[in-house]
Nucleic acid binder design. Structure first.
Length: 470
RNA sequence: CGGGGAGUGGCGCAGUGGUAGCGCACCUGCUUUGGGGGCAGGCGGUCGGGGGUUCGAAUCCCCCCUCCCCGACCA
């Protein structure tokens, strides 16, 4: 007999499935103000793992953490024309404080380019001060008309990096370094989500940037999700805020800047990239709980044996939890651990113990085996490594299978019903891009002909990867 | 803001004029707990808000509010 579905099957209604998973895996709730989100302990544990992975890579790339204020004088946002134009529809503005109307309203940061630029102008005097590399972990507010938990909320958590460099080349090199060594590396190696690194079109470029680079992923329904972006800001904010330094030759020069960010959206991406009809599937390197030891029944010494196994696995360096809640039924507990996507489950009951074994079950593929008690740690090590690799390979295979090479707008629109379409950007052009947009399809990114990063200015041979996006 | 839909226990729903019910969840007890176990008992709702019609309104009328879905914006 098939199991009763716990979640709406993905094939029936993917958005509904997503909501079900977020609720039943206890990741988040809607907040009381429309568009806001309450992140629950398990969801926040996942975010903390994401933070750790990104933060370590950001520091390895030389940036230091800072904190700037939530409220920004409204006039700052207006200094960079394109920036304000891009953001004004989604600004939340504080008009009153201390019981009085404020002389100058303050906006809740939608991003911190402007407030940070004001201080960069103060801190940067000499080429010796450069490069200046900072990052902050913060909340930002962008008033969203159509919120979706994690994917698009009015308030969200992220990191935003901001840098100043001596030259355009230095800034570009750094923006691309972050894209590759921080974002791409983390997403592929930890999240097991393959990403395309490419350049955004003018239409999709960040408001105030000269060039926007992106990591784009495909979710398991074939739609695209931007997982991280890195912007070259040129001298736009430098000019607006007076970030000037004296060069080695004594000239006064405007700094060249970058900014880059990744957000709690990644949690949603993780859910949608790997989840199945039984719930979340977490890649082992990310999972807050990598192994759960399930005590099936507390009889004939199974309890102490389960405790011993748990501490052995913890000593071996795994994030492990013991489930000894035997007053809850076995089926319920197992279903819950599957919902939460714990990569490896070890089950121990009287039958196992009598045979001198435990059961090992992999969440990613359902593989199940009896393991001798003295082989548990080594078997778990192997299972975690294999699951990590298999999940990445699955996601890559799925993306390849759902990506089609096409040569017309009509074919692209058809192909993007199930995934990505790839076609010549030279042929598509901004007119083709507008036609696609009318059909709900966007250019996710541009790639060089060989699939690598395109040159910043572009080439006639560049490829456009198009799709429907979250 | 344009187009659809819905507001009834925590969640999902039924209830077209007679004083509110079901499933799940929750609480208590019992039960031989290996895939959301079984049995019994129980807690919990000013039916989104206001006004009106009526002997009587979740139900009919008027006004308001909120939420959800599709579109435009978007990490």
């Amino acid at each position: 007999m098939p199991r009763a579905p716990i979640l709406t099957p993905r094939a029936d209604d993917f958005p509904r499935w997503y909501q079900d998973v977020v609720a039943k895996a206890e990741l988040a709730d809607n907040g009381p103000v429309r568009g806001t989100m309450v992140i629950r302990p398990y969801g926040y544990a996942i975010w903390e793992r994401i933070q750790q992975g990104l933060d370590a890579r950001i520091k390895a790339a030389g940036a230091q953490n800072v904190y700037f204020p939530l409220m920004i004088p409204e006039s700052y946002v207006h200094r960079e024309a394109e920036h304000v134009e891009g953001f004004s529809p989604e600004l939340a503005v504080v008009t009153h404080g201390g019981g009085r109307k404020l002389e100058e309203p303050a906006v809740l940061r939608p991003s911190s380019e402007t407030v940070i630029a004001g201080y960069f102008a103060k801190w940067v005097q000499s080429y010796r001060d450069l490069p200046l590399l900072v990052n902050q972990w913060a909340n930002v507010v962008r008033w969203e008309l159509r919120p979706r938990l994690f994917l698009r909320t009015t308030e969200f958590l992220w990191q935003e990096g901001h840098t100043v460099h001596e030259s355009e080349q230095d800034a570009r090199r750094y923006a691309l370094r972050i894209l590759d060594e921080v974002y791409r590396d983390f997403m592929v190696e930890v999240l097991a989500v393959p990403v395309l690194m490419g350049r955004k079109t003018e239409r999709e470029r960040f408001a105030g940037a000269t060039t926007t680079w992106t990591c784009e992923a495909m979710m398991s329904d074939g739609k695209a999700l931007q997982m991280g972006t890195s912007h070259e800001l040129g001298q736009n904010f430098s000019r607006a805020f007076g970030i000037e330094f004296q060069s080695e030759t004594g000239e006064s020069v405007h700094g060249w800047q970058t900014s880059w960010g990744a957000s709690t959206r990644l949690v949603g991406g993780l859910v949608m990239a790997h989840g199945d009809d039984d719930g979340l599937r977490l890649p082992p390197r990310l999972a807050p709980i990598q192994v759960v030891v399930v005590l099936v029944r507390d009889e004939n010494g199974t309890g102490p044996a389960a405790e011993r196994l748990t501490s052995e696995l913890a000593s071996a360096g795994h994030r492990v939890e013991l489930d000894a809640a035997t007053d809850t039924s076995y089926g319920r507990r197992v279903t819950d651990w599957e919902l939460k996507g714990v990569p490896v489950r070890i089950e121990i009951g009287p039958r196992d113990l009598a045979a001198g074994t435990v059961s090992l079950i992999r969440r990613d593929n359902g593989y199940r085996a009896d393991i001798a008690l003295d082989r548990v740690v080594v078997s778990v090590n192997a299972a975690l490594e294999e699951a990590q690799a298999a999940m990445l390979a699955d996601a890559e295979a799925q993306r390849e299978q759902r990506t089609a090479d096409v040569s017309s707008v009509a074919e692209a629109i058809e192909a993007t019903k199930v995934g990505f379409a790839r076609l010549s950007w030279g042929r598509l052009g901004t007119d083709g891009e507008a036609e696609l947009a009318a059909a709900g399809v966007s250019v996710r990114c541009l790639l060089a002909a060989d699939g690598g990063l395109p040159r910043p200015g572009g080439s006639a041979h560049d490829l456009a990867v198009v799709g429907r996006a979250y």
